[in-house]
Measured scan of single mutants.
Amino acid sequence: SKIRITWGDKTWEWDGDDEEVWKRILEWARNLGDEELWRHVKEWVDK
């Protein structure tokens, strides 16, 4: 399956939905430097 994140007018996609993928997404969000996006992603990961 895919994980799709839409933020503003951008959309990103990742293949898979296991823990490793979420770790990569969390790292990606942090590297993007958008605090609010990172917080949202972290909330999803922690669920």
Rank of each mutant, 00 (worst) to 15 (best):
S1G: 15
S1V: 14
K2N: 05
K2V: 09
K2E: 02
K2H: 08
R4A: 09
R4H: 10
R4D: 02
I5T: 01
I5A: 01
T6P: 02
W7N: 03
G8M: 07
G8D: 11
D9S: 03
K10G: 07
K10F: 10
K10W: 11
T11E: 11
T11D: 06
T11A: 13
T11N: 06
T11S: 11
W12F: 13
E13P: 01
E13S: 04
E13T: 06
E13Q: 05
W14Q: 01
W14T: 01
W14S: 01
D15R: 03
D15L: 08
D15H: 07
G16C: 09
G16T: 14
D17N: 14
D17I: 10
D17R: 07
D18V: 11
D18L: 13
D18I: 15
E19R: 11
E19Q: 10
V21F: 05
V21L: 09
W22I: 08
K23R: 10
K23V: 12
K23E: 11
K23S: 12
R24L: 15
R24K: 11
I25N: 00
I25E: 00
I25Y: 00
I25H: 00
L26C: 06
L26T: 06
E27F: 05
E27V: 06
W28Y: 02
A29G: 03
A29Q: 00
R30Q: 09
N31M: 13
N31P: 02
N31Q: 11
L32R: 06
L32G: 05
G33N: 11
G33H: 07
D34F: 07
D34A: 03
D34P: 04
D34G: 05
E36F: 05
E36S: 07
L37A: 04
L37T: 02
L37W: 08
L37R: 01
L37Y: 04
W38A: 12
W38M: 15
R39N: 14
R39K: 14
R39E: 12
R39M: 10
R39I: 14
H40F: 15
H40D: 08
K42I: 13
K42A: 12
K42G: 04
E43R: 07
E43P: 01
E43I: 06
W44N: 02
W44S: 03
W44G: 01
W44L: 15
V45Y: 15
V45S: 10
V45W: 12
V45C: 10
D46V: 05
D46F: 04
D46E: 15
K47W: 04
